[in-house]
């Protein structure tokens, strides 16, 4: 597979390490009343679609960027690649 890194262009997927469902960005609030359930679901009940999947890849043998790759799990076709930090900020993850 080839991943079109937003900063570095097309790179072989072998340079990357895979983590999984990009919803791992949405770490719950530990102070919320349902924190225990929220953390359980956050960590364990990830999206696993047969089709379009947003997922985290880490450019370990490269620039160390975490990327959000939108990829089809049936065909492996990649629709888009974004920097995970941009996605995280857009999703309102602040300090």
């Amino acid at each position: 597979m080839m991943i079109n890194h937003p900063l570095l262009g097309l790179r072989d997927a072998a340079e990357f390490v895979y983590l999984g469902d990009a919803s791992l960005i949405n770490r719950p609030d530990r102070d919320a009343p349902d924190a225990a359930a929220a953390f359980y679901e956050y960590l364990h009940l990830r999206d696993n679609p047969a089709g379009t999947h947003r997922e985290l890849w880490y450019h370990e043998q490269g620039d160390r960027s975490w990327l959000v790759v939108t990829r089809n799990t049936l065909t492996h076709d990649i629709e888009s690649v974004e920097l995970a930090s941009d996605v995280a900020r857009q999703q309102g993850r602040d300090v």
């Binding site: 597979m1 072989d12 997927a13 072998a14 696993n48 047969a50 997922e55 799990t73 049936l74 492996h76």
Partner: peptide, 13 residues
Amino acid sequence: DGYNSYAQRGNLP
């Protein structure tokens, strides 16, 4: 292979 897939095929690495 290490990535989510339903494709029943893998890659060279």
